[in-house]
Design a protein around this nucleic acid. Sequence first.
DNA 1: ATGGTGGCGAGGCCA
Length: 259
Amino acid sequence: MKIATFNINGIKARIDALLDWLDEARPDIALLQEIKTVDEGFPREPFESRGYNVETHGQKSFNGVAILSRLPLEDVSRGLDGDDDDDHARWIEATVVGERAVRVVGLYLPNGNPAPGPKYDYKLSWMERMKARARQMLADEMPIVFGGDYNVIPERQDASRPEAWEKDALFLPESRAAFRRLLHLGLYDAFRLRHPEPGHYSFWDYQAGAWARNNGIRIDHMLLSPQAADLLRDAGIDKEIRGREKPSDHVPVWIDLDA
DNA sequence: ATGGTGGCGAGGCCA
C-alpha cells in the first residue's frame, strides 16, 4: 500500500500538476494539504474518474486537507480535538481496509511565524493537542500513519542552510522539542528510517532561487505507529516534481507499507 | 535590513 503526502498549495492552481503526478506515482492513498478551498470547491470528478474516493475538510482561501484513496474510506473524522474555538481545517482521519486495516491521518501543522507571538503560541498548543490525540490513537495498537506538512525541521541535517532558520518557527528549539515529544510517544519518522543520510528535502521556497540553489528543508513527514513501522517496505521523496511547470513549493513524500 | 515569489480572490493575508 503506497501512501503519499503532498502539500499542493492550492487545488485550483495545482490541478493539472497534481493529476500528472497522480497518474505517474499512482499512490493508493494521497494525503493533500493546503487545498485552499471549501469542500464544494474541490474538483472531485477528475479524481473519482481515476478510481479515487475523495474526502475533504476544506476552508475558504486558506488551509484545508483532503484524502484520496483507491480503497473505501471508513470512519472519516474531521478536525483535531482539544480546542472548540479552533476553526482551521488542518486535520482529517480515515480508516482504509486493504489486506489489513490502516488508520490514516492527513495533517497540516501550523507554520507559527512570526515567533514569538500568537501564531507561534497556536502552533505549540496545536502540537500538544496532536500529541494527546496521537496518544489516544496509539492505544488501539494498530497500523497508523500520520502524514502531512508538519512545518518542523527536525534536525540540522534536514536543512540545506540550518543557520538561516535558527529564529524561524520551523526550527526553533521549542518546535523541535514538541516534534520529538511526538516521536517519544513511540512514533517513527518513516523517511528517516530508510534514508539516515543528510541532504533530503521536501520544500524549496519560491523566493531567491531556492530550488536552483537546492536551498531546501525537510518538513513533510510520515510518522508511523509501531505496528505501521513494522510494515514499512520503502519510503521516498518525489523531488523531481519541484522542477516542473507551476510546481507547488512542496513535493510528495511517500511510503510503501506491506498492507 | 530589505526584498525576494506565489495562491486566493479581489485587498490583504498567509506562507
